[in-house]
Amino acid sequence: MFKPIVAALRENMWRALSEGRLEDAEEILSRLKQEDPLSQETRGFELEFYLNSNRIAEANRLARQLCRLFPQSGRIFFLAGKVAYRLKDYKEAESHFRESHRIYPNWRTQYWLGKTLTQSGRFGEAESLLLSVRERTTNAVLELGWLYERRNDLQAAMKAYDEFLAVHPDHSFAIEQRLRIKARILEPESLIEEVGALAELGEDLPAAVFLEYVQKLFETGQTVAAREQITAKMGGLDAKTGSQVAWICYHAKAYDLACTLFLAHVRANLSYFKYLNALESAAARCGRIPQVLEAYRSYSAEAPHLYGRSKSLARRDGAPRI
């Protein structure tokens, strides 16, 4: 028989998750697991709690289990899609979002499917999905900006960011993206001159502009200047910017700098296999495989898949296994 207390707990759990009160949510979830442990609703709340708490490994294991246990739950598949998206497994995320939308059509699923397809480079369908939900959420306009940038339609990207910022003028990510697009539109010489003028005035360079600046230094053959700029700022870069600079260095074949930056921010990318592949490739080119193995040793408890990568990398390099 359905207990009245369960309905109250579900309502409180929903509110706690919606408002980001994770400590309260954990306490309520514990009560729900006592009163109603096996229901689809309780297990779904558990999955959403792990996802919102950034306990992605636990969320991933639970998502796989719940998709088998509750194959007709659009909510379970939706949450599983978000977990896969966080893991950058866009093929699996797409599959889950499509199944969720088949079971229970919803604009939120269309939005997340549009985000996923953008990441997969399938811009046509992604654009159609995001345009179809832009009246529901302005976040779709933000995602369209990223889609247009990836499609190299920089003017359309700028227009989308302007539209979003008209509604959310203090949104830091959108401001950063718009700055970066503006920097990309400038000719390399103009951007380099503008950055030089800012430096003379003693002004700090926004991270978004710095990324474009060092990339254009590499592209115009000013490798020494690019390396000097990156080395000077390397210690102060956050994980996101540091990882982006690492990719710029990797594509510019500055493998020593790429390896240093990849290693510095590897903990934030333990589940991003493309990142780990690039780290290992850069390390192999500059003789730093032992440092990668040591990093893997440090994080293997929280990312067990690193054990297998370590063994494979050690075999290829001839180094001792960890």
Rank of each mutant, 00 (worst) to 15 (best):
Tyr307Thr: 06
Ala166Asn: 03
Arg61Ser: 11
Val214Thr: 14
Gly124Ser: 14
Glu11Thr: 13
Leu130Lys: 00
Ala319Phe: 00
Thr220Met: 08
Phe45Ile: 11
Gln34Lys: 13
Ser95Leu: 07
Asp256Cys: 06
Ala126Ile: 08
Cys249Leu: 03
Asn52Pro: 00
Phe78Tyr: 13
Ala208Asp: 10
Asp204Cys: 04
Tyr307Gly: 04
Tyr90Ser: 06
Ser53Met: 09
Tyr299Cys: 00
Tyr275Gly: 08
Ser281Asp: 13
Glu200Val: 11
Glu219Thr: 01
Arg15Ala: 15
Glu163Gln: 14
Ala258Glu: 07
His171Leu: 01
Gln65Glu: 15
Leu117Thr: 08
Ile5Gln: 10
Arg297Glu: 15
Pro290His: 14
Thr138Cys: 07
Ala252Val: 02
Ile289Gln: 01
Ala199Lys: 15
Ser73Leu: 04
Glu35Val: 12
Ser39Asn: 04
Gln229Val: 14
Glu46Met: 10
Ser100Leu: 11
His96Arg: 13
Leu201Pro: 06
Trp107Lys: 09
Tyr299Asn: 13
Phe218Gly: 13
Asn277Gln: 11
Arg102Asn: 13
Phe70Trp: 07
Pro4Arg: 09
Leu201Lys: 15
Thr116Trp: 05
Leu186His: 03
Met234Ser: 13
Lys253Asp: 05
Gly308Ile: 00
Gln155Phe: 02
Ala254Arg: 04
Ala225Leu: 12
Leu198Met: 15
Glu94Asn: 08
Ser310Gly: 13
Ile248Thr: 05
Lys115Cys: 15
Asn12Arg: 02
Leu144Ser: 05
Gly81Pro: 00
Arg21Asn: 12
Ala25Asp: 11
Leu217Gln: 01
Leu51Glu: 10
Leu217Ala: 00
Leu66Phe: 09
Tyr148Ile: 07
Asn12Ile: 00
Arg43Ala: 03
Ala57Met: 05
Glu176Phe: 01
Ala283Leu: 09
Trp112Cys: 05
Ser120Arg: 15
Ala264Ser: 14
Ile181Trp: 11
Asp317Lys: 03
Leu293Val: 07
Ala239Phe: 04
Glu58Cys: 01
Asp170His: 15
Tyr148Arg: 10
Glu163Tyr: 08
Val209Ser: 01
Ala254Met: 10
Glu219Gly: 01
Ser281Arg: 03
Pro320Glu: 06
Gly20Ala: 03
Leu69Asn: 05
Glu280Leu: 05
Gly235Glu: 10
Phe123Ala: 04
Pro304Thr: 04
Phe210Val: 01
Glu23Asp: 15
Tyr104Ser: 14
Glu19Met: 08
Asp238Met: 00
Asp170Leu: 14
Ser300Asp: 12
Gln65Tyr: 08
Arg68Cys: 01
Leu131Arg: 15
